[in-house]
Design a protein around this nucleic acid. Sequence first.
DNA 1: GACGATTGTTGCACAAAGTGAAAATAGCTG
DNA 2: CAGCTATTTTCACTTTGTGCAACAATCGTC
Lengths: 268, 268
Amino acid sequence: MPRSRTRRPGSNHRESPHVQVLDRALTLLETLAREENGLGLVEAANRAQLHPSTTYRLLSTLVSHGFVTHDDETGRYRIGLKAFEVGSSFRPPSELRKLAPGVLRALMSLTGETANLAILERGEVTYIDQVESPSLLGMHARIGRRVPAHCTGAGKAILSRLSEEEVDAIIAEHGLPAHTPNTITERGRLLEELKRTREQGYALDNEEIEAGVRCVAAPVLDDKGRPVAALSVTGPVTRFHDDRLPMLINAIRAAAADLSSKLGYRPS
Amino acid sequence: MPRSRTRRPGSNHRESPHVQVLDRALTLLETLAREENGLGLVEAANRAQLHPSTTYRLLSTLVSHGFVTHDDETGRYRIGLKAFEVGSSFRPPSELRKLAPGVLRALMSLTGETANLAILERGEVTYIDQVESPSLLGMHARIGRRVPAHCTGAGKAILSRLSEEEVDAIIAEHGLPAHTPNTITERGRLLEELKRTREQGYALDNEEIEAGVRCVAAPVLDDKGRPVAALSVTGPVTRFHDDRLPMLINAIRAAAADLSSKLGYRPS
DNA sequence: GACGATTGTTGCACAAAGTGAAAATAGCTG
DNA sequence: CAGCTATTTTCACTTTGTGCAACAATCGTC
């Protein structure tokens, strides 16, 4: 209820308060998280668009809490154990965390491929759990990795269960950037693809985000029929050839149906 | 309301610069991470010893970056997906991350118990990887959980390979708080236990951190002989009875020796 | 259903706290 | 060892975050 503002009407306080320093520190953290090998002080400052001096103070504070570690050998900063510790305490909504591992394990042993669980948040997909294939040539979409929705199996699987408005909102925010020649970059074609995905109950990523990598995915629905997540198996094209696709599709659909029903979804 | 002046008492020589707001925000994050079910605004403010007003602003900023989520139903704040994402990019030192999963898997299937990998940092133990037992009654020390060193198998395993000075430094910082009646709370007894641990090559946690839970662990040594981590298996006393202990001990020692040799350790 | 108690949100005056420039220091490289 | 570049420290300035207090929205209790 937007209630009477006895104050002056010209107030612009529509948005939540922003604390600048914190804003910057978080950006810095996100920047570091993107760099496997850490960053030097100035490098970090440049990428985060901050003054080296500021960066130095922020990093010092982050280090003192263990959110960042400073490698004394190389002088590089990288994400620290405390960040891992805090991040690990994230709990996905619903019962997913409890139920998914079993389903993932089953899916992996059935297909022999790395099985992933992903969720959609703020228009992008994040892998939150996985069971790795023992195969040496297994693809491993790293847990915690955030990727665009329009060019991943998991993303398309979830999008296929959203309304056109919701999909449009995501396109508006993130666009449809190309990652490989196969990436779908036009709204029309994407909607078409999502329609087919929805009808068939699975999504295919045919080297759309990375050359040489294919992926089969299906949406996981909760008791209200909302697509809360997606299951996917990922692997090299050499193992995801047309002969094997039907098997993979069956497996992923069965697994998704299983998990959905465990979440209380009842197909209407 | 005690307005906390974040002043470092004691020696303020060569101290890294502290950014107060960030300090507070990180404390807030750590506070939230400890609460499975999230916290309301004032609750969070109280636990983090901050003014509600300040807390409100900090949380708003954290939410806008996705490090914290705000449940609109309950009004509670909890750790968000971005924190998970950033935390997942943490990489333990050395080759551990790559080599551990295989060893953990082997250890788990050999023993049937949940196998963990833990490291020591700042005098405390953090579980950084695990392979869960399929057993329904499996114990699961949550990944990312930080626990004291003196009352855990993994902690004692690592401590057993440190110098007495190093152990003393840790005791000085963290003390030896009791968690169960079995916790070792005296320096002398702990050192004795560590000596035995070192000689026998494994550590036993006999319900020292939690009643009903036992654990067997062994240190993982790198090429310089430093204890970089520990492997452990954890389970309920009912399954960790005396008849089975020898088997578990053998398995954990073999696994640790295997992993150590893969890291380049050569027993002298 | 009214009352007080508790929690969440916003405005504001003030000074503490963070800022960036620039200087000092340390590390490299040719 | 001169000339870089990266890091750390110092400092004067003022932006920014602060805590208070008022306000609003909830909640529980009698």
